[in-house]
């Protein structure tokens, strides 16, 4: 199991007796794109919150790069190189796109407690921030206040901000949710380009996105792992088809079988 960058063992989360995540054993191999799919309420986002320390696990262990990170505070998890995005677009709405990205650069490179300095010292991060915004196609919006960006642009900005930390592993929570077709294609392309040297775990509803992008897929239902494998194997699994048809129709046909 040495090539697993992130592993969980018996990961469980209970909310007042309701088991949202039930003994999940997840293994994400280094350098892969791994998808977590499943119907609404399957526990995908709860899993993300557990992995990144935003929620304490009721039971089970989480290991990142061989290190036990169970119970670690979320900021510390992020500092280890496991950085998440959020389902609702997570930008700083009243700051400009440049300032959004710079906040991540500023954290990664220190200099954040110095309240007596002018913010002009942050100009040193501008070149890198411009590059990152260019990479995600936001060159024209560098000085636009993030709250005024279109939805897809906000997601792109969020990815640029996350990339600014140069994390070893990124957790993307529904990166294409609510996007137009053109935006979805752009994000997929973007994920393709940023995967080099990184591991990505993503929650995704859009199965056509998952099909083209992900090496491994884990299907969750009611907090449990229902199936795991590549797209062909998972989409042919009768239990997966039943689970999907039983609750909600996926955006693409789950199986050709």
């Amino acid at each position: 199991m040495a090539d697993h960058i992130l592993e969980t063992e018996g990961l469980t989360k209970e909310f007042n007796g309701f088991v949202a995540v039930d003994h999940v054993a997840l293994g994400v191999r280094t350098g892969t794109i791994h998808a977590l799919i499943g119907p609404n309420g399957a526990g995908k986002t709860t899993c993300f919150n557990l992995l990144t320390g935003f929620l304490p696990a009721t039971a089970g262990r989480i290991r990142f790069k061989g290190r036990d990170i169970t119970g670690m505070r979320p900021a510390e998890v992020a500092r280890l190189g496991l950085v998440r995005s959020f389902q609702i677009s997570a930008v700083f709405p009243r700051l400009t796109a440049l300032e959004n990205v710079r906040l991540a650069l500023q954290r990664a490179r220190g200099r954040s407690f110095d309240f007596w300095r002018s913010e002009r010292v942050l100009a040193r991060y501008n070149d890198r921030a411009h590059q990152l915004l260019f990479d995600v196609g936001l060159s024209e919006f560098v000085h636009t206040v993030a709250g005024q960006l279109a939805y897809g642009q906000k997601r792109a900005l969020e990815i640029a901000t996350t990339l600014a930390l140069d994390p070893e592993m990124m957790l993307l929570d529904e990166p294409t949710a609510g996007m137009t077709h053109a935006d979805v294609e752009r994000i997929v392309e973007l994920i393709h380009t940023i995967r080099a040297g990184r591991t990505i775990l993503m929650v995704e509803h859009n199965l056509s996105v998952v099909e083209g992008l992900c090496d491994t897929i884990t299907v969750l239902t009611r907090g449990r792992v229902l199936a795991e494998g590549d797209y062909a194997a998972v989409s042919a699994n009768p239990e997966v088809i039943a689970a999907y048809l039983g609750s909600e129709a996926p955006h693409a046909e789950p199986a050709h079988a």
Partner: peptide
């Protein structure tokens, strides 16, 4: 700048470390 980030979106500021 970090204070403003916390005001705007605290979970995101945390997730940036």
């Amino acid at each position: 700048q970090v204070l403003k980030a916390i005001r705007e979106n605290e979970p995101r500021a945390i997730s940036l470390g």
